[in-house]
């Protein structure tokens, strides 16, 4: 464990908490892409199956359970509790355009042709594109509430910090996970446009981020 990875995990946790609390307190999921949240729940489900096969550390186990629980709670709030507030006509990204290539690639490019390893690889590739429906929804509505942009900021920051963690681990322990690194870089690149808007608009105190 190093400071970059710890900061990344904390940033990820903060993002998930921000969204969950926002939906719960505002009793609304307007502007939130339910599809992205379902994809994130799928990412955690397919990635954390090793909860049942191997114990790594208390931290590892606890964080995996927390991420799983909170992502399912978010999906529950969007599609069950506050479903009448769900903005379905703007959440129209075709997720099959993400799932088909990701499934295909995880069968082609993996470390071992075993169910657990292919599911892990699937979760890594899927996480890189899981935010697409949410970013698409924001470009479609042309705006995002500032709390939603904070959520996206911490979500994007988490994988950027993981890249720093991979650089650190490469130089200190010769650790290199090619699939995770390549996918993590692609994932972070997708946020760059948002990061620019976030810094130039939201941090300037705008109530909400209005896209140009």
């Amino acid at each position: 464990m190093n400071v970059f990875r710890l900061a990344g995990d904390v940033s990820h946790l903060v993002a998930i908490i921000i969204l969950l609390v926002k939906i719960w307190r505002s009793k609304s999921c307007a502007g939130i892409s339910g599809k992205s949240q379902v994809l994130f729940a799928l990412v955690f489900t397919t990635r954390y199956l090793d909860l049942f096969t191997v114990f790594i550390s208390a931290y590892n186990t606890i964080m995996k359970v927390v991420f799983l629980a909170m992502s399912y709670a978010t999906v529950y709030l969007i599609y069950m509790r506050f479903r009448n507030m769900y903005d379905s006509e703007n959440d129209t990204f075709r997720v099959e355009f993400l799932l088909v290539p990701v499934i295909g690639l995880s069968f082609l490019e993996n470390y071992a042709f075993t169910p657990l390893e292919i599911l892990w690889t699937f979760s890594i590739f899927l996480e890189a594109v899981a935010i697409m429906p949410q970013l698409f929804m924001i470009t479609k509505t042309g705006e995002a509430e500032s709390i939603t942009t904070h959520y996206l900021f911490f979500l994007g920051l988490y994988r950027a910090l993981y890249i720093a963690n991979w650089v650190w681990r490469y130089h200190t322990e010769e650790f290199f996970d090619q699939i995770a690194v390549v996918s993590g870089v692609v994932q972070t690149i997708f946020y760059c446009d948002f990061f620019y808007l976030y810094v130039t608009r939201v941090l300037r105190g705008k109530a909400k981020m209005i896209l140009p």
Binding site: R47, I56, F67, N165
Partner: peptide
């Protein structure tokens, strides 16, 4: 060059 078995990263 990877953690075998369980993944130590989240």
């Amino acid at each position: 060059d990877r953690v075998t078995g369980g993944k130590d990263e989240l």
